[in-house]
Nucleic acid binder design. Structure first.
Lengths: 223, 223
DNA sequence: GTCTATAAGCTGATAGAC
DNA sequence: GTCTATCAGCTTATAGAC
C-alpha cells in the first residue's frame, strides 16, 4: 500500500536509534500510544503532539507527515521484537524452549502493551502497511521455527502436532493480555496488571500449552 | 463514555430486528465492515455509504449520526453472540462441552470475521463504548461459566486449573483466526479460509486445549 | 530548532428539491 | 423515502517570525 516498511533494516549502530534529540523518541512514544488507541486513520496529529507535550508543528519538524511517522513507529516496534525465540536449534529441549518463549511473550504483553496493540490494530485492519513485512520477514521466521518444532517431533521429543498452529496459539494467548487488556481487567476486576498476576498467567499459559502438546512443563506449578 | 450500550435488550419479536427496509440492514452491514477496518474514529460515513451503495445523506436518514450507527452495529453483534456456551450445567461432560464451545467459536471466527474484528477494535482501543457491557453482561457471564468449570474440578471430572484463564485462552485462540486473518493468511499462504482449513484448526485448538487441561478429547483426530 | 498563524482539504451533518 | 448541494468545523500540513 502507500509506502510500506522495507523489511526494516536494523538500526545502524549497536545502541538505540540515537534520536537526533530527546524529542524524537518522545514523539515516537506518543505516536505509538495514539496509533495504538485509534489506528492509523483514527489517530490525530494534534493528539500526538499533546501526548508529547509539544506544539503540532514541532512534530512535523521531526516527521515529514503522518504516514512517515506511522512507519517510523512500526519500524521501531518491529526492530524491538527481534531476538525472541531466535537462537533455537534442533538440539534444544522442546519443553524448556517453548516455556521460555511463552514467558518472554507474556512479559512483553505486560511491559509494552501499546506496542502489541498497535501491531494488532494494523493486522486487524488488514495490514495495509505491513503486508510486505508479513511476507518477507514474518513468514520465513515462522517457517524456520516450524521446521525446528517438526524436527523435535521427528526425533520423538514430542508428539505430533501442527507446528504453525502451535505458534499461532502461543501468539494468540500471550498477546491477548496486551490487546484485550480492557476486557481482561474488567472481568478480573483489577485496575492494573501486576507482577504476581503476570506470573500466574505465564504459569497457566505455559503449563496448559505444553501439556496440550504432550510435553511435561519444565517447572510444575500449582498442581 | 459517550452513550454506551444499555445492556442491549434483545430484539422485540422473535425474528431479526425487522428492519424498516432492506436498506437498514444493508447500511448496518456496511458499517460493520467499515468500523471493523478502521475503528470508530477512523471510520468514514462516506465510506459506509459507498460500501452500502447509497448516497451519504441516505445513511443519515436511517441513523441520526455516526455515534448511534456505531451503537446499532455493536448492539446487533452482541445480540447475535448470545446462546453460546449458555445452557451448560454441572452435570454436563467437560470434554464434550468445551469441545463444542471451541468449535462454535472457531466457526464464528470463520463465518463472521468482521464482527469479531469490530469487537476487537473496540476492546483494543480501550472499550470506550462497551465498558458498561463488559461489567454488566460479560463479567457475570464469565463468572457463571467459571463456576461451572470449578464445579467440574471439585467433582473430580477434570484436574485443577484456572477457569477464567481457560475461558480467556479459548477466546484468544479462536478469535485469533478472525482478528488476525491477514497475518494468518499471509503466513499459511492461502488467499481465503475454507472449510477443511477451518476443521483442521478446530481440531487442533480443541485437542490441544482439552489435553492442556488434562481432558481426553471426545473425538480423537490425526493422532 | 521552536512555535504561532493560517492555508487547503476533508468530514459529519443538514437543508431542501424531488 | 431519496438524493444533490452545501455548510460549519475539524485535520493535515506549511509558511514564516523568532
Amino acid at each position: 500500500m502507500q509506502g510500506e516498511i522495507a523489511t526494516a533494516g536494523a538500526s545502524p549502530e549497536g545502541g538505540a536509534q540515537r534520536p537526533r534529540d530527546k524529542h524524537y523518541s518522545t514523539i515516537l512514544q506518543a505516536a505509538q500510544e495514539e496509533f495504538a488507541d485509534h489506528g492509523f486513520k483514527g489517530a490525530r496529529m494534534q493528539a500526538i503532539a499533546d501526548r508529547a507535550g509539544l506544539p503540532k508543528a514541532n512534530v512535523h519538524y521531526y516527521f515529514r507527515n503522518k504516514n512517515s511517522l506511522y512507519l517510523a513507529v512500526l519500524d521501531n516496534i518491529l526492530n524491538s521484537w527481534n531476538d525472541f525465540f531466535n537462537d533455537v536449534s534442533v538440539k534444544d529441549d522442546p519443553a524448556v524452549t517453548l516455556d521460555t518463549f511463552i514467558r518472554q511473550k507474556v512479559r512483553m504483553s505486560f511491559e509494552d502493551p501499546t506496542a502489541s496493540r498497535l501491531f494488532a490494530n494494523e493486522i486487524i485492519q488488514g495490514a495495509p502497511y505491513l503486508s510486505g513485512y508479513l511476507q518477507d520477514v514474518m513468514k520465513p521466521w515462522v517457517a524456520e521455527r516450524a521446521e525446528i518444532i517438526q524436527s523435535w517431533i521427528d526425533a520423538g521429543k514430542m508428539p505430533d502436532t501442527d507446528p504453525v498452529l502451535l505458534i499461532f496459539m502461543i501468539w494468540a494467548t500471550t498477546q491477548h493480555y496486551a490487546d484485550f487488556q480492557a476486557q481482561v481487567q474488567s472481568i478480573v476486576a483489577k485496575p492494573e496488571y501486576d507482577e504476581p498476576q503476570m506470573n500466574h498467567i505465564a504459569d497457566f499459559v505455559s503449563t496448559t500449552i505444553l501439556r496440550g502438546c504432550g510435553l511435561q512443563p519444565p517447572s510444575p506449578i500449582s498442581e
